[in-house]
Design a binder for these strands. Structure first.
Length: 417
RNA sequence: GUGAGUGUAGCUCAGUCGGCAGAGCACCAGGUUGUGGCCCUGGGGGUCGUGGGUUCAAGUCCCAUCACUCACCCCA
């Protein structure tokens, strides 16, 4: 038997109800903040991701699903959404009418990583991106929107982790300093960190291994190297978060895995998901639009891990599965023919209807109706056909009444309307 | 890519020293000739992940392999 691909999963009912709740709540909530939905394709030219995410990130180096498209273009299933949104913003010159644009997008992403709890090869993100605003207040509005979204879903136990990654003005100096310091201690670092030292020394700060943590324990903080503009931006973000009562934790070791981030970086974490504790993450990417060939426009965005969020929501809101309002229990061929027609008309008239054509005993039909949580059962057999009246039984009160068969659909609608 | 754990009925899992493949739940039928839930009785359902090996005999021991899970790593 053919099984599904490793790291992929089927989302089945009743879980799909939770997914729809999560997605619909996001749509409703984000739109009140002025965001509009964009739906870019899941497939892009590989070059888009190489240039945006960064050539020497884990994602680009080893996690992308890439294959040959036409003769000379490589195609990649998107590992994240921001690059596509930026591409669309530039390609359709969406900045022309108004450089300030806010978009959200919901859909699957693909990364070829080893699966584990909260990590799949096809996973789903809810993204929001803002273009054209460099004010720290938009950073805060975005974080506020995110946190209030989570509370709408009754998800608790989340914490905001905040950092500033500086900008092309100030980051090189810090990077240089860190690199120099760590070069003297390569002997203390793990294999991975020695490699990181060359490509992206900031990542060494993120390593969880004991020797590496010791090696960087007295490392200077990026925050001490911020240039004047970055420093005042970061301060303003903090002040505005305080003003709006969002608690946060400054985490100088928060280094995000994509190269395009600048200044504000944040992550929303939970204790409830094991090792994969990031439910959402985001930050500024003030240079990306220009890097990809667009006008110089600041931008900021975040991504929510929908699979992880659904896991958190599921424990709070058990998905209710409503049973049919009418369950048709026909006995005999003639009754089934009538029931088939009524089932169609009732469903079409807006009544949740289920019919059983198995031809089994009434007892069996009743048992199934009960199991499905049916509110009423409509019983039709030879006896009813002879008298021209079907029996409507209320499963809760056990009341039964006869309905005229020649205007049965109307009678049921009156009865249930 | 690395490590550990787990694979037995639709689901959750027992299975002792190697000796006929089990339970609970679910499903089906009957107890009630046409009326659900509770109860009682019965029934169907298994390549024991797969392939090889040891043995008179393997779910059980050995080897290989695959899958899943968790962790490392990375991140949503």
């Amino acid at each position: 038997m053919i099984q599904l691909v490793r790291g992929f999963k089927d989302i089945l009912p009743p879980e799909t109800a939770v997914w729809r709740h999560v997605e619909n709540t996001a749509r409703e909530h984000f739109e009140k903040f002025g965001f509009r939905e964009m739906r870019p394709p899941v497939l892009e030219q590989t070059a888009l991701f190489q240039r945006s995410i960064g050539e020497h990130t884990d994602i680009v180096e080893k996690e992308m699903y890439t294959f040959a498209g036409s003769r000379d273009t490589m195609l990649t299933l998107r590992p994240e959404a921001t690059a596509s949104v930026v591409r669309a913003y530039i390609q359709h010159k969406l900045y022309a009418a108004d450089p300030v644009c806010k978009f959200y997008t919901i859909g699957p992403m693909f990364r070829r990583e080893r699966p584990q709890k909260g990590r799949y090869r096809q996973f789903h993100q809810i993204n929001a991106e803002v273009f054209g605003i460099d004010s720290p207040y938009i950073d805060v509005q975005l974080i506020f929107m995110l946190m209030t979204y989570f509370s709408r879903l009754s998800v608790t136990g989340l914490s905001v982790h905040l950092n500033s990654l500086g900008c092309p003005e100030c980051r090189p100096a810090y990077r240089q300093k860190l690199s120099e310091m760590l070069s003297d201690r390569t002997g203390d670092l793990c294999e991975d960190c020695v490699r990181r030292l060359e490509k992206n020394p900031l990542r060494v700060l993120d390593c969880k291994k004991e020797p590496c943590r010791n090696a960087v324990s007295d490392a200077p903080s990026m925050l001490d190297f911020l240039c004047g503009d970055c420093r005042s931006h970061f301060r303003a973000v903090q002040a505005a978060l305080d003003a709006i009562d969002i608690p946060y934790e400054i985490d100088p070791r928060l280094v995000r895995g994509l190269d395009y981030y600048t200044r504000t970086a944040f992550e929303i974490q939970t204790e409830e998901l094991g090792a994969q504790n990031a439910v959402a993450g985001g930050g500024r990417y003030d240079n990306l639009v220009e890097m990809l060939g667009g006008p110089s426009q600041p931008a900021i965005g975040f991504a929510i891990g929908a699979d992880r969020l659904v896991e958190l929501v599921e424990t709070k809101i058990p998905a209710p599965e409503p049973g049919p309002v009418i369950f048709l229990a026909p006995m005999g061929e003639a009754a089934m023919e009538l029931a088939a027609k009524w089932a169609c008309l009732l469903s079409d008239a807006g009544v949740r209807t289920e019919a059983d054509f198995s031809g089994r005993s009434l007892k069996a039909l009743m048992r199934r109706a009960d199991r499905l949580g049916a509110e009423n059962v409509l019983i039709v057999g030879d006896r009813e056909i002879e008298q021209n009246e079907a029996i409507l039984r209320n499963m809760k009160t056990r009341d039964q009444k006869s309905l005229p068969m020649d205007r049965l659909v109307e009678s049921v609608l009156e009865h249930e309307g």
